[in-house]
Design a binder for these strands. Sequence first.
DNA 1: ACTGACATGTAACTTGTTACATGATTCG
DNA 2: CGAATCATGTAACAAGTTACATGTCAGT
Lengths: 181, 181
Amino acid sequence: MTRLSVLAHALLGMLSTGEMTGYELTRAFDVSLANVWTASHSQIYPELAKLEAAGFIRHTESGPRGSKRYEATAAGRDELRRWLAEPPQPQAVRSEALLRVFFLWMVPPEESAGYLRRQAALHREKLAAYEALAQAIGDCADGPTRWSRISLESGIRYERAMAEWAEWSVARVAPPTASSG
Amino acid sequence: MTRLSVLAHALLGMLSTGEMTGYELTRAFDVSLANVWTASHSQIYPELAKLEAAGFIRHTESGPRGSKRYEATAAGRDELRRWLAEPPQPQAVRSEALLRVFFLWMVPPEESAGYLRRQAALHREKLAAYEALAQAIGDCADGPTRWSRISLESGIRYERAMAEWAEWSVARVAPPTASSG
DNA sequence: ACTGACATGTAACTTGTTACATGATTCG
DNA sequence: CGAATCATGTAACAAGTTACATGTCAGT
């Protein structure tokens, strides 16, 4: 194994938090990790096999329906810490939504304003969901939960900034007329 | 051709703005589009060939060094407009930087604070660059430029929100002591 | 018996990265 | 004539998506 993928480190991180099955990991990517990284089961199972072969995780018991519980080994946790200490390199941006904005001059103003309004609505929706979640988990200051709260805060600020941007853009494209104000 | 990729639409969009060679498109992804979408020449040249075969672009003259200038056909511009009108679907999130934050409980507080400070610095740097660029292009209200200014604004607000988030996180992890304040 | 959630895997395909490979033109 | 930039391509690989495929267990 030349070098571990980001997904591999995500799995390693989850399995350092506690024992989990592939199925539970799959659900985690749909729920707690959804704000941060996504992966499907078809990617997860082969990656778990690779990580086990490389000695970074091991599977302990076998559960009821042929399920396997995995946990990180000492080598796995070391690799995770090494990865966490790597210098951050600026990441390539790829936003389909923003790319569309770049080419909105192609369509009439009503249509581009509509696009931006839909974007604003989507961001407002996500913002509300994140804020409700933050309210629900409260001001936790302990272990892993603390850090998931900090990640969530990033999502909150991101969605708020993007909602405000979309609303600002609408105003710039279709300024409120005297009659409408 | 089953369905066009996002990259294909990016190329179609650029070639609706004006004639360009593959080389010029490659540079555009490094400069004006860098905030929005990235692609390397090894992806661009084959994609141009596919778009031409599908009749969405055509190449006009051949330049000095075997260069080919492409432009969008009417069918290409129609396809671009169709794509712009597609209902936006929420996109999968994948942020390696944020994933690391999720697992920062693994390392000592000094190290996690250091990580967040580096993140803050990177975002502040990008923010400054974007703001300088915004200052340089000014308050343009015409055609494509107007929309690139709007895209840039998204980058500015994003970097600012993320810088502020990182700084907030540092304070949460390593609160200023009475002696340091 | 049937439905739904649990549970794991593989195959085919698309997208994106890194490295390889070549040649033309311009400037100093 | 040498280096930088212009200019276009291919090949091998890594990462991610969608669809296919199978079987278990709990509840009704």
